[in-house]
Design a protein around this nucleic acid. Structure first.
Length: 316
DNA sequence: AAACTAGTCAACCGCTAGTCA
DNA sequence: GTGACTAGCGGTTGACTAGTT
């Protein structure tokens, strides 16, 4: 199939920046005739431009519902979360940010967000930590300096310790902690997911940015976080048998949770009170009881003391 | 003050998918 | 079924600006 070129140079069509006069002509025409018929529009509107150029100019800059100016923090968070979900599908991302165009978001991503993520040690493509990939490299010290994500990252960097015994016990303790965290976070995450879903469905509108968290120990699975952005695309969400609201495989990384750019503290989630100490204790009691019922070896609660501190750090 | 560099973003390009005759 | 056309998408370019040397 041979395609007719949209913009024939021999017709003397203008390229480059639009003048205010051209903008006015285009706005005036579209106000009178509505959108569509882009191929024939330039001639009818008296513009020496190709239809494609006219459509782009209208879609990206002249449309009355376009929001200009700096991106807000909320918008930035939404972009990151939607990018984790959709990848470089800028139009899909733009649908989640009313008033913003795909082109604007794409530019903002490439010039601002991408750099910030890299600086924070997050791969902007996969949204996973760059640490694991780079830990073997000589750049590690520099990377570690630039990031604050090491504290709660359970990683093979344990090998840097000197005392083998302390090291192993520490690792064991961390794995145990991680397993414990996984259990609690699973419960809490489920609760959050339910809240989020009911709020979204209930209000039918966008919420404040919220997070749900599932933590697995390093020995089992990689850490897994799901993220509920503003205007979450509901058609991509499902509710599984356990009552969890789930989205397509998230690409959020373990480091992301410590990034204030990407995750907010629980205090900001917008569902106050559900994650209080009493709730965590109730959940803890409940699943420890389940372990007893399931003949699982139960560790005395006091041994979880450190784990509670870790949870505090985790959600801090 | 001039030259250079890096960052930003509007606009363009090439391509694909959908629609219609 | 085929081809012409339209709309829309993501990647890239290049003009402009701000900052640095």
């Amino acid at each position: 199939m041979v395609r007719t070129p949209c913009c024939k140079p021999e017709l003397g069509l203008k390229k480059g920046a639009w003048t205010p006069e051209e903008d006015q002509k285009l706005i005036s025409y579209l106000n009178n005739h509505g959108e569509g018929g882009w191929r024939t529009l330039p001639e009818k509107a008296g513009l020496k431009r190709c239809g494609k150029s006219c459509r782009l100019r209208w879609a990206n800059y002249l449309r009355p519902d376009i929001k200009r100016g700096e991106f807000t923090e909320d918008e930035e968070l939404s972009i990151i979360s939607l990018h984790a979900l959709h990848g470089n599908k800028w139009s899909d991302i733009a649908r989640g940010l009313p008033g913003r165009t795909d082109n604007e978001i794409k530019n903002y991503w490439n010039t601002h967000i991408k750099k910030r993520l890299i600086k924070k040690g997050v791969d902007p493509v996969t949204h996973k930590s760059l640490i694991s990939e780079t830990s073997k490299s000589e750049n590690l010290p520099e990377i570690l300096n630039n990031q604050n994500i090491i504290q709660t990252t359970i990683s093979s960097n344990d090998d840097l310790g000197n005392n083998e015994k302390v090291k192993n016990e520490d690792k064991k303790s961390r794995l145990s902690s991680a397993r414990f965290l996984n259990k609690v976070a699973n419960r809490v995450g489920k609760k959050i997911n339910q809240c989020v879903l009911s709020e979204i469905i209930g209000s039918g509108g966008p919420l404040t940015t919220t997070t749900s968290v599932t933590v697995d120990s390093i020995s089992d699975k990689s850490m897994n976080f799901s993220f509920t952005p503003t205007s979450y695309p509901l058609n991509q969400m499902t509710v599984n048998d356990n009552g969890n609201a789930t989205s397509p495989p998230s690409m959020f990384s373990d480091s992301s949770v410590n990034d204030p750019l990407m995750y907010r503290s629980v205090d900001n989630i917008g569902f106050p009170g559900f994650l209080n100490e009493q709730h965590v204790m109730n959940e803890l009691t409940r699943f420890l009881q389940e372990d007893v019922n399931n003949d699982v070896e139960v560790t005395p609660v006091y041994e979880y003391q450190d784990d509670f501190e870790e949870i505090g750090n985790y959600f801090a």
